[in-house]
Amino acid sequence: MIGNDIIDINFTKEQSNWKRKGFLDKVFTKEEKYLIKNSECPFLSVWRMWSMKESAYKSHLQYHKKRFFNPKKLECFIQDTKKGYVIINQIKYLTHTIFESNYIYTTTNSSERGIKNCCFYIENTIIKNQQKEVYHQLKKMVSNKLTINYNELFIQKSIAGIPKLFVQDQEIDIQFSLTHHGHYGAVSIL
């Protein structure tokens, strides 16, 4: 199972106030709050761990299906500036995070195989447009990888809200994860 999550750094500064009373207590465990408090840049530490949680949760959801909203149940452990892991109900999800000047990007991969990632800039930040752009990039990547005509690919969401990829009426057996936030989007495929 794979998962990914991108955070537009400038967008998140506008959109979220992590210093708001109660915010950290709802999202982070005691150990995570200790890491944030003692980090060189608490802002980056908060959003790195948020992206780790989101990415691992997406991976978890593909298998366990049942959605829930409880960020504290997704416990982050930091190994170095890139590597870490998240524990969800005793299952360990390895994460890999990169920091760029404008975004933070985390992927989760439980497979032995490597994943292929594509991060891109999105001009128009309206949510429908972000989704359209991410779908376009996914179809482009899958079309290249499996040599399927781009125009024959389409995407439909399952009841749980997870997007699935089809060629004509056949669901394509490929693992992927999509994310978008503000001006940035990313696609991971296994």
């Binding site: 709802k26 909203f69 409880n70 960020p71 504290k72 936030h181």
Partner: peptide, 30 residues
């Protein structure tokens, strides 16, 4: 709603109704 903003929604609900939403209750706030 952005998932980080869902935390804001929950904090705003707590303020508005003067209640505390523990993590078990929050889990279902979808």
């Amino acid at each position: 709603i952005n998932s980080a903003n869902l935390v804001d929604v929950i904090l705003d609900v707590e303020d508005e109704f003067d209640i505390e939403i523990d993590n078990d209750a929050m889990e279902k706030m979808l």
